[in-house]
Design a protein around this nucleic acid. Structure first.
Lengths: 214, 214
DNA sequence: CGATAGTAGATAGTGACGCTATCTAATTGG
DNA sequence: CCAATTAGATAGCGTCACTATCTACTATCG
C-alpha cells in the first residue's frame, strides 16, 4: 500500500507518518524506485502501537524509539523494553550522593529483602520508587509509606495476573513480548482508572457508614 | 520570610515562584507595602506540593491549579480534586457517538455492576478506562481484557489500603484530603514501580522454572 | 542619609516536544 | 501525456513550563 492508504488504515496523518519515519519509529517501506515506497500490514500495526504509546501511555517519542529498537531485536528483553517507557521521566542527574535518596534506597532494599524479590537495583522502577519515597518524606506525609508492604503484596498479585495473561501465548514468543509491553504500559492507565473507581466506591461506603453511626 | 528565603526553603528558583504566583498556584504573600510581600510556612508547603505534583505526578500546571482550587474550598471534594490530575490527559472531544467507545462503556458498566461498585460514570477515571479498552481492541490485544476482573479485584484491595491510611487522620479533615490527594497521585507512581519490580521478580522465576522443566 | 541589595510586577524570551506545512524533483497510473 | 501522488528536505507552529530582563520601588545597614 502507498502512504495515503497507510494513513487511512491507521488513522495517522501522512505528515505524521513521515515524521515517525524520520525519527525511526517506523521502518522505511520497501522501495520500488528511489522515491516510491510500499508499506504493509506490519506498518499499520506499528503505527497503531506508536499511537497507543503516545496517547494512552504518554511515553515520549525518544522512549518509544528505544522501546521499539529493543522489540525489534532477535531476542528482545521485555523488562528493558518496558523500562524505556519509565526512564525518560526520571531525574536527569541521579544525584547519587544525596543522603535522602540513599536512605530511601536502604528502606526499599529492606522491602525487597522481606518479599524475597530478586530484582535489579539499576532498573528505572527501583529508581522511581526511591524518588517517590523521598518526595513523600519531603511533603511530610512519610506516614503513607506504612502502606508500602501492602502495596507490594498487591503488586505481586498484579504481576501474577500479568504473567498469566501473556503466558497463554508462550508458543509465540514475539507475541508474548508484544503483549507484555502493551499490558504493562497501557495497563498502567487501566489500573490507575480502576483504583480511582474503587476508591470512589469505597469512600462513599465509609463516609455513609460514618454518617449513620454519628 | 521574603521571596529569596522562600526559594531557599523550598528549593524552587525565585523566577519559578513568581511564575507560580502569576498562575495562581501559590497564593500571594502578605503585603506590607505595594511592592513588598512576606511569605510563611504555608507557602513552603504549597510549593513542595506543587513540585511533587509536577515532577512525580506529571500533572500539568492547569490541572494543578484546579486541584489546588478544590483543595482550598471550605469543604473540598477529594475525588473532584484527584480528578483534576487525570482529566487533562483525556481526549479533548469525547466523540461520544463513537460505537467503539460505547461498546467499551457497556462492558465497563457490566464490570461495575458485577463488583457492585457505586461510581459516577462521568468521572475521568471511567472515561480513561473506556479509552484503554478501545485502545487494546484496536491493537488486537483485546484478550488482555480477560484480566479486567482480576485487576478490578486488586483495585478494591488497593483502595482499602488507601482508605485505611488516610482514615488514621479522620480527626483532621483537612489532612485527610491532603493525604488522599498525595497518596493517590504520587502513589500511582509508587504502584507503577512496585508492579514492575514484582513482574521482574516473577518472570525471572517463571522463566527459570521453564528452563529447568524443558 | 546614602549606598547597596532585594523586591513586585510586567513583558519577552527560551528550549523541548510533537507534530504540521511547504517545497522540489521524481514517479505513478489512467 | 498529464494530473495526482510520492520521498525527502527544510522550516514553521503551538503548547508547555519555565527563565531572563527591566523598571520602579523598598529595606536595611553603616
Amino acid at each position: 500500500m502507498r502512504i495515503a492508504e497507510l494513513s487511512r488504515a491507521s488513522g495517522v496523518p501522512v505528515p505524521t507518518i513521515k515524521y515517525y519515519l524520520r525519527e525511526g519509529l517506523l521502518p522505511p517501506g520497501e522501495f520500488s524506485s528511489p522515491n516510491q515506497a510500499r508499506y504493509d500490514e506490519g506498518h499499520v500495526r506499528r503505527l497503531k502501537l506508536v499511537r497507543a504509546l503516545v496517547e494512552v501511555g504518554r511515553v515520549p517519542i525518544g522512549g518509544i524509539k528505544e522501546l521499539l529498537a529493543e522489540l525489534d531485536q532477535p531476542e528482545p528483553n521485555v523488562h528493558r523494553a518496558i523500562g524505556c517507557a519509565l526512564e525518560p521521566g526520571l531525574r536527569r542527574e541521579p544525584e547519587e550522593d544525596n543522603p535522602e535518596i540513599a536512605a530511601a534506597k536502604a528502606d526499599l532494599d529492606q522491602l525487597i529483602e522481606r518479599r524475597g524479590w530478586n530484582v535489579d537495583d539499576c532498573s528505572p522502577a527501583y529508581q522511581q520508587i526511591a524518588e517517590v519515597m523521598v518526595t513523600l518524606r519531603r511533603l511530610g506525609t512519610a506516614d503513607l509509606l506504612d502502606g508500602l508492604e501492602g502495596y507490594a503484596q498487591v503488586a505481586d498479585k498484579i504481576a501474577e495476573i500479568d504473567l498469566g495473561l501473556v503466558a497463554r501465548h508462550r508458543n509465540d514468543p514475539g507475541h508474548v513480548v508484544f503483549e507484555a509491553v502493551i499490558g504493562t504500559i497501557i495497563g498502567d492507565s487501566l489500573l490507575q482508572g480502576l483504583r480511582r473507581l474503587a476508591q470512589e466506591n469505597l469512600s462513599a461506603k465509609v463516609f455513609q457508614a460514618n454518617a449513620v453511626s454519628s
